[in-house]
Design a protein around this nucleic acid. Structure first.
Lengths: 234, 234
DNA sequence: TTAAGACTCGTACGACGTACGATTAGATTG
DNA sequence: CAATCTAATCGTACGTCGTACGAGTCTTAA
């Protein structure tokens, strides 16, 4: 069963760096493919055309390469998605990293940056549920967990606390993305709500579906969580 | 622009109910298609084969119909996904609906049922980010919002509170789904974590990725939110 | 009889992911 | 120098997908 598949051990490591000759940008300058270029082009394409707009053929075209050439650097399309998502989630924490500043500021800064990154690339929310944790995701998890620990959360509660805050960002991002369609749709939804009369009185009255201060909603929910966590120090 | 498209006004409403003749189950008993049957078959197929396993042709085969026949009842594949998701999210609240019981029990019951429904159909988490709110989703939003209002949350905070709790369920479900792969994967992930040594010390030490009490995590986060909400009555 | 829906479905088109193998270029070895 | 090896590229082709189109059938009503 594991006979004719050289997959897995292949490629991935190596570059080429083109021995800097006299004319770096010759007329037929064909940069070689590389994971970096592929990932960068993927993000561009996703930004421009959305999830459905990324196809291996189009991606190769943007790189002025043959479609099948991509497969030397990448196992399959899912991997491209994974790399693009993680690429967009890079985070460099401000330098005063640890002690002096309040843990809470650190957490809030990182999470708001995270959410902002994902809203800048709306396709990312669609990919979230089906992709594993890349290094940048792990890095954010690490920072979050460390900050909460530093905040005094007991070890026994640390994982639950970390996941709860994490889930808040995931949920808020996805919910927000769902409402990012045109205002027309939102109005239509609210009107349809009114049509169905008494079935949904509360969310009709509170205009829940017309919410537009998503930043505020995010921040309020986050405060709720962090307040709760900091009042239960271990 | 809106010229040659009869779409939207067509079909959807009507049944047939087969004039109950002498033999209801004749030998060539071909039940007519219907939205209900299509949705039911979709859920079956999704349960059995996952998101990638649902194709219009396979769906039609399961219904012993031609592939294109589906399109009289449904506009496109996305609509099938939407209907399947909403179908799986139906909720009938226990009958004592309102006054006597604690609002908190109502909320917890509904949310745990929600989460359980989605975990029973793992494909649902993948669809969440890209689908609009169906009637069953709206119903759950309504119940949630109403309970929180009844709990004393001020009108000004009601939407933020509702979305925060909502987001918690969304995030928890998706996170959980991401870790539903085999234990092998999880162990591999944790080991890879150890390999990368000092980059992720906290989540390595706390074995965050090996979490297996997801019910507990969900419940703790929810309690955190509800505690916060009930202590800020308006 | 005729006409009008309501409903079914065979055929076909353009796109997709990617298996396979041929090809080329650079480095390594004799 | 020639021979060999490996990294990398890519053209062709296969199977599958969503669905446009239009021709069919069956039911009902005038």
């Amino acid at each position: 069963m594991a006979a004719a598949k050289p997959t897995g051990t292949q490629g991935k490591r190596s570059r080429r760096t083109r021995k800097a000759g006299p004319s770096v940008d010759d007329k037929s300058s064909e940069m070689p493919l590389s994971l970096e270029r592929i990932v960068a082009a993927s993000v561009e394409l996703l930004d421009a055309q959305g999830v459905g707009g990324l196809t291996m053929r189009r991606l190769a075209d943007h790189l002025e390469a043959g479609a099948m050439s991509l497969y030397w650097h990448v196992d399959n399309k899912e991997e491209v998605f994974g790399l693009a998502l993680d690429a967009v989630l890079e985070y460099r924490a401000p330098q005063h990293v640890g002690e002096t500043e309040s843990w809470r500021d650190d957490v809030v800064h990182m999470l708001e940056d995270w959410r902002a990154s994902m809203l800048r690339h709306p396709w990312s929310a669609l990919l979230l549920p089906r992709l594993a944790l890349g290094p940048n995701m792990l890095n954010r998890l690490e920072l979050l967990s460390r900050a909460l620990s530093r905040a005094g959360v007991a070890d026994a509660d640390l994982n639950a606390a970390t996941w709860s805050v994490w889930n808040h960002v995931m949920g808020a991002t996805i919910t927000r993305g769902n409402f990012d369609r045109s205002d027309d749709d939102r109005n239509a939804a609210q009107i349809r709500l009114a049509e169905f009369g008494e079935r949904y009185p509360t969310i009709e009255r509170s205009r829940l579906l017309l919410e537009d201060d998503w930043d505020g909603v995010f921040r309020k929910g986050l405060d709720l969580l962090l307040d709760g966590l900091s009042s239960r120090k271990g």
